[in-house]
Design a protein around this nucleic acid. Structure first.
Lengths: 246, 246
DNA sequence: AAGTGGTCTAGACCACAAC
DNA sequence: TTGTGGTCTAGACCACTTA
């Protein structure tokens, strides 16, 4: 017997559609053939067609809109927004983001106390379980078209013997000014990761199916490389790129 | 009539399993209940269970292994590898990557001529369609456990009046030395994006289901901000993070 | 009303892995 | 041999959009 070299039918359908999207047969924004039409064309039942389409949706090549059809998405376009990563210090001592985006809190930010989980304690060089001030915000800009989840952590141990033993420190970026006023020279390191979002993250960031999350950790450090604070950004991966000067 | 507030059954199953994975009921590396068991437990048929599992696989929370079972994956661990991004110049004028990884070409690298597509021409500030030298390599390190797709582009116009009109320029990072020898002071900018991989990329990088791709464009620039070359890295998003000093 | 995608049933048979 | 996930059929009914 020769080895079976046949792909499953649902994958043949997915391959056919994927190639059509990549080579322009199915232009971005245009509807694909309906599920019934594909089932007839390939001589299979609709669940088989849907299995192929599910694969394309999970890879972000296609978007299904209820009652209207399944639409090709632009596969490899340059992201519509480039965000330069960095922090600048203005002449009056304020710190501002290099991308100049003015964020608005979509909901009132939540200030809580968190015990440092292992992964964050490691980056902050504090013992796991040490308490930290935590700010949590869903931020929007550009009439809600831009969204990010922003969380700021400051370990209590950094705030000992400062006025912030009494009052809560401000969230970033005002936090940087406050830390600099304590006599520190600041610099920053960012760690960039990516993964698929959890459902609540996908909803908060308005992520379509098959669009990954960009996860950025920013550590604020003194000149002596002592970590002072940590921020976590969850960004939509679809139409966004980050730029860094090396 | 009160509004329907019921989630579809397959989503209830997915939610149940996702919560179990996140709270430790189903520890990473351990098998979930079998599809038949879940079907009985929830009073549905197996295709319905599979629909829920498909959702979890697409989000990278679960991995199905044929004949053995469906296994939980570690959800939020710190990536096992941090790659500092940057280029250092050694005392003898060579350029090396800041992460110090020694790559091996898994296959002989392919040198071709490419006409600049719009997105790349834009970054290189050359007219679209201008020819470029192109090197293409699938690189491995650490006994094949690390993988990356690496593509180097050099526009012909950069090479006019140099010896590389006659011979092909070397691929990066030796390329940097060659460009510096032409009298340029080099610096670099990187653009980081993420998206789901195409099937061939997933296979080349050994990406599991639900693991996104990290896509990095590095532009080599003169002090006068003239782009000289461009590199494209496709990296596995799962167990990898990039670090940048701001 | 007609067309689209969304959910679900109740099976069947296959391929692979472990015992 | 048994248990697992992988593929596929042939329907049914629902929810939503457009005309």
């Amino acid at each position: 017997m020769p080895p079976k070299n046949t792909q499953p039918k649902y994958r043949q359908i997915a391959d056919y559609l994927r190639e059509g999207i990549l080579d322009g047969t199915f232009p971005a924004g245009q509807p694909l053939p309906s599920e019934d039409a594909l089932a007839k064309q390939f001589g299979v039942t609709r669940p088989t067609v849907r299995q192929g389409l599910t694969e394309l949706r999970a890879s972000g090549l296609v978007e299904a809109i209820m009652g209207r059809g399944t639409f090709a998405r632009s596969p490899h376009g340059r992201p519509s927004l480039t965000r330069p990563r960095g922090v600048r210090r203005t002449s009056d001592g304020q710190y501002v983001e290099a991308d100049g985006i003015r964020w608005t809190d979509a909901e009132p930010p939540v200030a809580t106390r968190t015990d440092a989980p292992l992964a964050l304690a490691d980056l902050l060089r504090i013992p796991p379980g040490e308490p930290m001030f935590t700010y949590d915000a869903l931020q929007t800009a550009d009439q809600g078209r831009l969204r990010q989840l922003h969380r700021t952590y400051v370990p209590f141990s950094v705030l000992i013997d400062t006025k912030y033993e009494e009052e809560a420190p401000p969230p970033a970026p005002e936090l940087y000014t406050a830390l600099a006023d304590l006599g520190h020279e600041l610099h920053f390191t960012e760690y960039v990761r990516t993964r698929m979002p959890l459902p609540d993250q996908a909803q908060a960031l308005r992520l379509a199916d098959g669009v990954p999350l960009m996860h950025v950790l920013r550590v604020t450090l003194t000149e002596a490389e002592r970590p002072l604070a940590l921020e976590e950004f969850h960004l939509p991966g679809g139409e966004l790129e980050l730029s860094f000067r090396l």
